[in-house]
Every structure is written in structure tokens, then in C-alpha cells.
Amino acid sequence: MTTTVVENDVDNALVADQAREITTKVDRPDLIFRGIIRTSGIAVLTVMSLIGVFLAYRAAKALDVAGWSFVTEQAWEPDSGKFGVAAIIVGTVLIAVVAICIAVPLAIAVALYISEYAPRRLQSTFVSLVDLMAAVPSIVYGLWGFFFLQSNVTGVARWISTYFGWIPFLSVEGADPTDPLSPSTVYTSSTFIAGIVVALMVAPIICSVMREVFSQAPSGEREGAYALGSTKWGMIRTVVLPFGKGGMIGGTMLGLGRALGETIAVYLIISPVFIIQPRILESGTSSVASLIALRYGEATNFGTSALMAAGLALFLMTLVVNFIASSVVARSRSGAESG
């Protein structure tokens, strides 16, 4: 019928051939279904945003009293009105930075090994081994750090502080490098040891993000590099690493977010001090999460409010880091489709 119209009158057909309106009629069961899943999405959104709201609500009282000194004060004595996060934030960041400095080279090596060097048959085994390590409870790492590492790593810490003590943050006060019998307790419970333990915890997480982007490097470009006579390392340096840069940065940030929030392993190892302590090899440091775990039990009403404020600071810090991480990773994945 349409064809006859076209033959008879072209103008008429153009008028008749307007785009038809396409409507999808959603019937009732589907409406209910969409309602249910939309509700659950909104519920998740609500719970996640309530975390920030309730922490802020409970923290308001303490923040009101402390004002701006909350950011600059080092001591933590809420009941005498003298408290702030300067020392604990610095401690938290130092532990996380030490952890990242140790974890990132290890994670890059493992990720490269799994995606480039490992025999094909063993690849999936290694992948699930790394995933398993990411799920090992933090208390297990804490036990290892407290009972094994603490006593075995002091020799390394002593050596570093003896020969590199001229670098300010590697020096140790109260230790005499010339006396081989000086007590080693000054080297225990330090930022360095907590950092090693946290490094082992976050390395698998960083590694699995990196491995994923490395294995997405386009095979055409890999073969191109080989065809130009490149060695394997040359290929990795010119194709795989530049390609995976976004994933490497994003994975590192993700690991940093986890390292900032680690509680129990750090709690077991460090001995808390409430002054800014930049010497990473020396005993005594502090972190937000371990402060909360340490003080929540004995805190008064106002002390609890102060702890909530500290928790809020930690929450905001990790949230910023995670947002940056996930946007960097997402951007690197969308670029992955070229080639």
C-alpha cells in the first residue's frame, strides 16, 4: 500500500511518512519491578550519605568547642577541651605513605609478572592467590607484624638510622649508633613497622587493579614493538607501562585509601603518642583509626563526640582519595578501547 502512494503522489507520501511516535508502554508488573529496584538503589544511596550526615551531627558538639584549633592542635584530651587532629592525621598519612612506598614497587612487579612473564597455565592461579591475599583478615597481618616482624626488623631499622640518620626523617632520638648493645626498644612500635604491615595488606589490592590494566594493553601494539626488534622489557616500557599509567595511579590511590583507614593491624603495632612525630624509624606514632579503637570505650559523652569528629576527618580524607582513584581508573579504562 505504501508503495502505491509513493508512485502516485510524492509530496503526499512525504507528508504521510512522518516519523512515527515510538512509545514503550510499561505494564504494571514491570512498573512494580522498576519501583523495587529503584527503591533499593535509593536505599543504598541514603545509607551511604547518612554515614557522613550522622558523623557530622554527632561531631558537631566537639567541633563547636574546638573550632579551628581542631586542625592545628596536637594533643588529644577532649575532656580538658584541648584536642585536635594535627598529630594523628600526620601519623596516619606517614604510615600510609611508608606503606605505599613499599607496596607500589612490589605490586608493579607482581602485576607485570602475572600479566607478562608467568606461564599461561599458572596465570589464573596467581590471580586468585593475589585475590585471596586481599581478603586475608587484617588481624592476621596484625598478628604477624606484632609477633614476627617487630622483633626481626629492628636490625634493618637500626642499620638505616645509623647510616642514613643525617636525613632528618630517618634519624632516631635516644639511640646511640656507636653502642652495639644499646636497647632496640627505641626502634619498635614505629611508623616504619606499621607501614610494612599495611604495605603487605594493600599490595594485593593495588596489584589486582594494575594487573587488569596491564593485561588490557593492545596486542597489536605489543607485536608492533616486537616487530621493531624490541626486547621484552623494551616492549613493557614502551607499550604496557604507558598504556597502564592510569590504572597504576588509580590503583595506588585505591591502596592509599585502604592504608589510611587501616585499624587493627596498626593498633596492635604502634605505641600512641600525641605529638607530630616525623621520625619514621623511632618508636611512637598515631593514627586516626587506632585512636578511635583505643579511646571509644572509656570516652565520656563529649569525648565520643570528639572521636566522631576524628572519624569524620578520616572519612572525608578517604572519600576524596577514593573519588580521585575511581575517576582515574574509569578514565584509563575508557581509553583502553583504542587500538
Binding site: V44, L45, L254, G261, T263, M308, G311, L314, T318, N322
Partner: peptide, 18 residues
């Protein structure tokens, strides 16, 4: 929701408890 859920995967567990 996806952005928030992704950012929350690394929520410090102590904050969840808090």
C-alpha cells in the same frame, strides 16, 4: 549511585562501625 558505591568500597571499616 554507582559513583557513590564505588567510592564507598574503600570505606574505612572503623567508620562503618562508628
Amino acid at each position: 549511585v554507582r559513583t557513590i558505591a564505588e567510592a564507598m568500597t574503600a570505606l574505612p571499616s572503623i567508620v562503618a562501625g562508628l
